[in-house]
């Protein structure tokens, strides 16, 4: 019964998301939705590796950027369509991930996380310095295939759905149980016959592939990338972690919820309260509001930091993981007010 209800809910959400662009014609909102759907993919991938397998990555941008650059380089060097990037971008991300994991999964816990951070930095420098191949800081600009946002929206939606389906299938199989047991205790898993190195590699490869595909989508959609955008530590790697943590580490739908929240929060900071504070400042001419809107735009990294502290303090399992707790808190407040 509950299973049926779950399936119904999922189909309803998917259907709603499929219908939205037919109702909402505002390009700005569609743009935000496309970004959110892209983050669903990246967040789910991060969650598979970090949330379920326990191997925290600080360097998801390495795979994201590899995917994006693969798509871009196919265009400028070989004149292929950037859409091939969706196929080859994922593969190239795996090509990067494989030797990296082979060597660095000897490291455990924080040391592995630091290695992913290093991979992120190394690749960004490669993309910056190797100008003859990557055009360095000039970046890569391509012609987008569509002016309308609709095709991108549906591709992003399909990828987001695909990544959640993959996570669900994986977590209901031997793979999922092995990932969890590695997260909980590597030595115990090893003694129960789990080839921990192999399964960590597998988890990394799936995550890298999904992240690479998301990167290729980004290239196609935005039409412009440079090393500081797609190999960005705080805009990609840290954002991926935030999506996972805010939504709920180790939950199927956590990253999906986290993606929508984080894209909203990011946009809120970028535009200083969706432009409302700025408008209010202009209208009232209060000095405080003017400086507040400026500081808010500059301070988004600080804002993210505060958000993480709050989430970890009050909802360590994220919005989805602590949903029950959240609801109880809200209900208590309501009944309290009624009295």
């Amino acid at each position: 019964m509950t299973v049926n209800r779950g399936i119904v809910a999922q189909i309803a959400v998917l259907a709603a998301l499929a219908v939205i662009p037919l109702v909402v014609h505002n390009d700005y909102y569609l743009h935000l939705l496309i970004l959110a759907l892209m983050w669903v993919v990246i967040g789910s991938a991060w969650n598979l590796l970090a949330g379920y397998t326990g191997q925290v990555s600080f360097g998801d941008a390495a795979f994201f950027g590899t995917g994006a650059y693969t798509a871009g380089l196919l265009v400028i060097h070989w004149g292929w369509s950037a859409w091939w990037g969706l196929f080859f971008g994922g593969i190239m991300a795996v090509v990067i991930a494989f030797p990296f994991g082979w060597i660095c999964f000897r490291l455990r816990g924080a040391y592995f996380a630091l290695a992913t951070l290093a991979l992120n930095e190394v690749l960004r420098h490669v993309a910056t310095i190797w100008e003859s191949f990557t055009q360095g800081m000039v970046g890569i600009m391509i012609m987008q295939s569509y002016i309308s946002k609709l095709p991108y929206y549906y591709i992003a939606l399909a990828l987001a759905a695909l990544s959640i389906i993959i996570i669900r299938l994986v977590m209901r199989s031997r793979l999922g149980y092995y990932f969890l047991s590695i997260r909980e205790d590597q030595d115990a898993a090893e003694s129960l016959g789990v080839n921990t190195h192999f399964y960590k590699m597998l988890s990394l490869v799936i995550a890298a592939w999904l992240t690479g595909v998301a990167g290729a989508l980004y290239m196609n959609y935005m039409g412009f990338i440079d090393p500081h955008v797609v190999f960005s530590l705080h805009d990609i790697s840290i954002m991926a972690i935030l999506v996972g943590i805010v939504g709920g580490v180790g939950t199927t739908y956590g990253p999906a919820v986290g993606a929508f929240i984080m894209v909203l929060v990011q946009e809120m900071f970028r535009t200083a309260g969706f432009g409302y504070i700025k408008a209010a400042a202009k209208f009232t001419d209060v000095q405080f509001l003017i400086s507040a809107s400026e500081q808010l735009t500059k301070g988004h990294a600080l804002g993210f930091g505060i958000l993480v502290v709050l989430v970890i303090r009050y909802m360590p399992n994220g919005v989805v993981g602590d949903w029950g707790k959240l609801m109880i808190a809200l209900r208590l407040q309501k009944t309290g007010r009624a009295k």
Binding site: L180, S181, E184, D185, D187, A188, G250
Partner: peptide, 8 residues
């Protein structure tokens, strides 16, 4: 020293 997979 027992090593249960605690959160399972």
């Amino acid at each position: 020293v027992v090593r249960p997979l605690k959160r399972m």
